[in-house]
Every structure is written in structure tokens, then in C-alpha cells.
């Protein structure tokens, strides 16, 4: 079972990285979501796998699952929703205002080798 779990996490990571390396915002967001899955499952698995172990305290039961990774991951899942939402609105805003959804700064915009604007404007007055 551990083998299946490790390879599944690996596959999710690989797919996530590949998507993050795409050039448009949407696949990059999908990539980060895939990576979130991978990270959440990884964190959860760090408590070691347990089949049919009790998650809730009951009289007479000795073996329980590890609760700490579960608590960590529970909030992580909710927070990753918030993160995805923020990234999506940023992507949307940039697409709507710029008309394109590239993640890299186009080469023509990147040619600003001089000092920032404040110093260019004022210091020579």
C-alpha cells in the first residue's frame, strides 16, 4: 500500500510541476492545485498509513490513527481554497486588463535596465 501511496503522490507532483511550467495562467493554476493535492496527501501520509484504525476515541480501542497530520491537513485544504481563489482573481484581472493570459513578462516589457522611476525623474532636477 505504501508503494501505491508514494507513486500516487509522485505522479500528482510530476503532473503539477509540468502544468506549472506551462505558459498560460490557467494551466499554472491547475498545476498549483495538483501540487496542493500532492502536498496535502504527503502531509497526511507522514502520520503513516492506517487501514481501519479508529479516528475517534471509543472505549476499549487501543489503536488510533495519528490525529496531528489530519488536523494540519484539514486547515491546509481550506486555506488552499483561499489561495486558489486569490490566484484565480489575479489571473482573471490580468487577462481582462491586458487581454492575454501569459505568465511570463513579454520580452518587450522587460527591457528596463535603468534606475527606478523615482530616481530617474527627480534626482537630476
Amino acid at each position: 500500500m505504501e508503494f501505491l501511496m508514494s507513486t500516487a503522490i509522485g505522479v500528482l507532483t510530476a503532473a503539477g510541476i509540468y502544468m506549472v511550467l506551462r505558459l498560460r495562467t490557467f494551466p499554472v493554476i491547475i498545476g498549483t492545485s495538483l501540487l496542493s493535492y500532492a502536498v496535502n496527501v504527503f502531509l497526511f501520509a507522514s502520520g503513516r498509513l492506517a487501514l481501519n484504525a479508529a479516528p475517534v476515541l471509543r472505549d476499549g480501542i487501543e489503536v488510533y490513527t495519528d490525529p496531528i497530520p489530519q488536523a494540519l491537513v484539514l486547515t491546509a485544504i481550506v486555506i488552499s481554497f483561499g489561495m486558489t481563489a486569490v490566484v484565480v482573481i489575479m489571473a482573471l484581472g490580468s487577462y481582462l486588463s491586458a487581454g492575454e493570459d501569459l505568465v511570463d513578462v513579454p520580452a518587450r516589457d522587460a527591457e528596463i535596465p535603468t534606475a527606478p522611476h523615482a530616481l530617474r525623474g527627480e534626482a537630476v532636477e
Binding site: M5, S6, G10, V11, I17, F42
Partner: peptide
């Protein structure tokens, strides 16, 4: 190139998880 990087990352994470889990 991206596929190589991605597979490298995936293999690394899988190996890490395997070691931790075992």
C-alpha cells in the same frame, strides 16, 4: 525539458514519501 524536470520532481517526491512511510 519540462517533462524531464517534472518527472525528476515526481520521482524525488515519491522516493521521499516511500522512505518516510517505511
Amino acid at each position: 525539458r519540462d517533462a524531464v524536470i517534472a518527472i525528476g520532481g515526481g520521482v524525488a517526491v515519491a522516493a521521499l514519501t516511500w522512505t518516510i512511510l517505511m
